[in-house]
């Protein structure tokens, strides 16, 4: 009895969380011109149509670039920081940790606005650079945290052993530490990529005519597009994410790092 009601709660929660995806997927598969569920006949025409829309192609590519560059940058800075926090007696350690994790605490929309007002407008910083700055800062705390997790799995004396065999500090880092945190770094890259790719609030103020990320474009299009194209696009994005996550879980055990 208890079991049964437990599983029905579980099933209902799953339906609530995942059901809507099936509904947009179905709506996106519609052969008709209107966004409705159940769909009017089945076809892939909207999935094909969406690929033809120049605007979405451009913003999709920008989102990709942005996610790759800012996650790469955040790892480039985050790995040394995580390493220092794990291995060195860093002065003002807690203050530093707080500063680096502050992008998690400050709501992203505020960062976007602040960057617009105090970097883009007065300094003439190109919007794309501001986007990269904002996204990199936003992803940095995740990079530091995920890499820290994998560093705790590597004992310090392993590095010391390398040093006693003649390696320098940096030699030990590149030959011993890096290969052992490679999976953690890939997990961090995937999580950072997804975070940046899906990010809306920080980009909100930093995009404008001619330069926009995919989620922002989708938000804009929702207001005047009533055909199933956005549903098809949403479905494609969801499928892409699911694929990446499943692959990462298989290869890296991604959920250990979340």
């Amino acid at each position: 009895m208890m079991r049964l009601s437990g599983f029905s709660i579980l099933a209902l929660a799953m339906l609530f969380l995942l059901g809507p995806f099936f509904i947009i997927a179905a709506a996106g598969l519609s052969a008709g011109d209107l966004l409705v569920f159940p769909p009017q006949g089945l076809s892939l025409r909207w999935f094909v149509a969406i690929l033809d829309i120049e605007r979405f192609r451009v913003s999709f590519l920008l989102s990709m670039e942005l996610a790759i560059i800012s996650t790469g940058l955040s790892l480039l800075m985050g790995v040394p920081a995580a390493y220092a926090l794990a291995r060195y007696d860093v002065p003002f350690r807690e203050a530093m940790r707080t500063i680096i994790t502050s992008p998690v605490i400050v709501p992203a929309i505020i960062a976007g606005l602040a960057l617009l007002r105090y970097a883009v407008i007065p300094l003439g910083l190109p919007v794309i650079s501001a986007l990269i700055l904002g996204h990199t800062a936003l992803v940095a705390p995740y990079a530091v945290r995920v890499v820290s997790v994998s560093l705790t799995h590597l004992r310090v004396d392993v590095e010391e052993a390398a040093i006693l065999l003649g390696a320098t500090r940096s030699g030990a880092f590149f030959r011993i530490v890096l290969p052992n945190i490679k999976n953690g770094m890939m997990a961090a890259f995937i999580l950072g990529f997804i975070t940046s790719f899906n990010q809306v609030p920080v980009s909100l103020f930093l995009t404008g005519p001619g330069i926009s990320t995919l989620p922002i474009d989708m938000l804009g299009a929702m207001e005047f597009v009533y055909d199933p194209s956005i549903a098809a696009l949403s479905t494609l994005l969801a499928l892409m994410t699911i694929l990446i996550v499943l692959l990462a879980e298989r290869l890296l055990g991604l959920s250990r790092y979340v």
């Binding site: 040394p80 920081a81 530093m96 970097a119 530091v144």
Partner: peptide, 24 residues
């Protein structure tokens, strides 16, 4: 060395993120 390794991330987040927010 520890401080040096922290610096890029510190300066980046501090200047590109925290500073504008504080001004706001």
């Amino acid at each position: 060395i520890g401080l040096m390794l922290m610096m890029p991330a510190m300066f980046f987040v501090g200047i590109a993120f925290l500073l504008p927010v504080l001004i706001l």
